[in-house]
Nucleic acid binder design. Structure first.
Lengths: 346, 346
DNA sequence: GATTAGCACTCGATAAGGATGAGTGCTAAC
DNA sequence: GTTAGCACTCATCCTTATCGAGTGCTAATC
């Protein structure tokens, strides 16, 4: 169905289109890609490729533009070829990221910023999901008579805190005892485990504090919930305004609104649980209408081999998937390494 | 120089232009604003107003457009008139803000979001500057051998934390003693006070911990610094894309880039230390080139009468200053009240 | 002396026509 | 199967014409 020459023509068109953003004609291909055949032959091939759904025209006598299907084919071929990462480049980026690294959230945000600067695309990042990471330290601190501060430090060095109110005050010494107990029993457990019942199970052992526990438990549970919230960072949104495909202000407004609204995009990124490290969603493969002519490349970052977040790039379907995927891979590896390295110090 | 009728004509033009975004002609004014004179007379007045710098034309036979100077005049008059705030509306907004309020940072972010939704303008907010607020609780928590978590809770209920590393470990009991000492000595002091020397002064009293203190002091100081960082929240950036004055994609790109870069805008908002609660910067009054045809209205929010942050609106100079200033006032008062109310529970 | 009706004039916006050229599909020759 | 040649298509650009909202000026009016 797709013989060697058709493939070469298709790839040539994709290459040219990625850099020019203009529909590609048969003469352009024969001129700049040495296929050894005349434009007329290429025209025939292009016509076939159009029938197969890999190309389309913007009007009856225009050049051809690659379809989502074409990018999909291209990407699948390219990605399967083992990609070599430029180690020096990786190290450069790593040292920049390490320089400003204070805590995990910051690291992820800075990564998105740098990624956008380097690629000139809009960068996205999901905040780390610490639900599955282990708790390193937990503490209850009385702020005033009715308010208690819950602090959870996890193995990544991430610190999360929530304040909750108690109807009736709990004496300081009891709070201290509770803190100690929590530390003993919950250290090295994950929030996910705790939610599955570890918390109440643990607490049943402590009859002495029964009444306090019963009052504090729902508050802690609620705090845990708020800790789980996934956030989205988007950096370099203005980069979208530079692409010729988004010169229509209405179109770009829809896309940026979609990013600003966050929730659906978080869904999209979080749900997409591909086994691969790099996931590429092209045009229509994206569920939500506003980004049906965008592509999103995402990579995961991991802690102890467990995916805890994502970093990605959003732009028009006409993008240099290969080079962007490489860059993204560098970022994802670097983030993971920095987290895990930090983690070693425990 | 500006007699009553000229003023009425000018105001009429500003009113019409704010709602239509089109240059205003003399006939439009005579039709919709009953000035009791013919279009010809209005034309004469308009010509005078143009000579005085309050109006300009987009081309030689176009209608008139108000200048920055005109808006300035208009705003000064309007703002000086005592503005009544719709108490029911204020209460409505307040209850929405209170519903989701957990901590100060969140409150400010949510306010910006709601403000943008209500006004259909881009909302800006400076994160609370807690430098001047009083510390309610301070605590050092050992995370592992080399890392210590510093937690500061201030009177607004805001919790800030930073992790810092120590070359050599400090035993847990000494850390506890230090924490107690810090609490005794620093409670109800502000970070600003501490930076002015309170910290070292306090520590000289404790000879026993001299060596620990000398090691930990710079780390704490550094943490304090990082706590001071002012952040900017921008919400509803896409609203800018809906204004006819920003239909040129290059222009709007410049503006959004400026917002995204944050730093200069933070400068602009933070530096502007007007005594009034509401500050209005019109067009050229803004120092930075990218926003020289934008206006920014800001209001402060306060804790115990001290300004600790700002919330504002950014849009084209053609904006309904009066109504927006009113809305903004509602928000600033609500935020202040919620903070201070929260604070009462201490 | 201020106001206004009348009118010539300006200029952006819109539409229509024509030329240009990049590109195609098809046919017939190689 | 490949390709040269050619008619055809259609977006883009340029020119020209028309339209109308709006102005400034002048002369008549109050």
């Amino acid at each position: 169905m797709l013989d060697e020459r058709k493939l070469r023509v298709l790839y040539a068109i994709i290459d040219s289109y990625i850099s020019s953003a203009e529909p590609i004609g048969s003469r352009t291909i024969s001129k700049y890609h040495d296929l050894g055949v005349s434009p007329a032959t290429i025209r025939n091939e292009m016509s076939d490729l159009e029938d197969l759904g890999y190309l389309s025209k913007t009007h009856s006598s225009s050049g051809r533009v690659p379809s989502d299907k074409a990018y999909r084919l291209y990407v699948d071929r390219m990605i399967s070829n083992e990609q070599k990462i430029d180690k020096r480049r990786k190290q450069e980026i790593k040292s920049i990221l390490e320089r400003e690294h204070k805590e995990l959230d910051q690291l992820v945000q800075n990564s998105a910023k740098l990624l956008s600067q380097i690629t000139s695309y809009t960068a996205l990042a999901l905040s780390p999901q610490i639900k599955e990471t282990k708790i390193k330290h937990i503490q209850l601190i009385p702020i005033d008579k009715t308010q208690i501060l819950l602090i959870i430090v996890n193995e990544t060095g991430l610190v999360k805190n929530t304040v909750f109110k108690m109807e009736n005050p709990i004496p300081d010494d009891q709070l201290l005892a509770l803190t100690n107990m929590l530390n003993v029993k919950l250290k090295n457990k994950s929030i996910a485990e705790i939610e599955k019942g570890a918390l109440s199970e643990v607490f049943t052992e402590f009859y002495r504090y029964k009444s306090e526990i019963e009052r504090i438990l729902p508050a802690i549970n609620k705090s845990m919930e708020s800790i789980e919230t996934i956030d989205l960072y988007a950096d370099g949104i203005t980069k979208l305004l530079s692409f010729p495909e988004y010169k229509d202000i209405e179109k770009v407004r829809t896309i940026i609104s979609f990013i600003e609204d966050k929730n659906e995009l978080i869904q999209l990124l979080a749900d997409d649980t591909f086994p691969q490290d790099i996931s590429i969603k092209i045009g229509n493969e994206n569920f939500y209408a506003p980004i049906k002519d965008c592509s999103i490349i995402t990579a995961t970052y991991k802690l102890d081999g467990e995916t805890i977040g994502k970093i990605g790039i959003l732009g028009p379907t006409r993008m240099d998937y290969v080079s962007l995927a490489k860059t993204l891979k560098i970022f994802s590896e670097n983030i993971s390494e920095i987290i895990n390295n930090y983690n070693v110090s425990k």
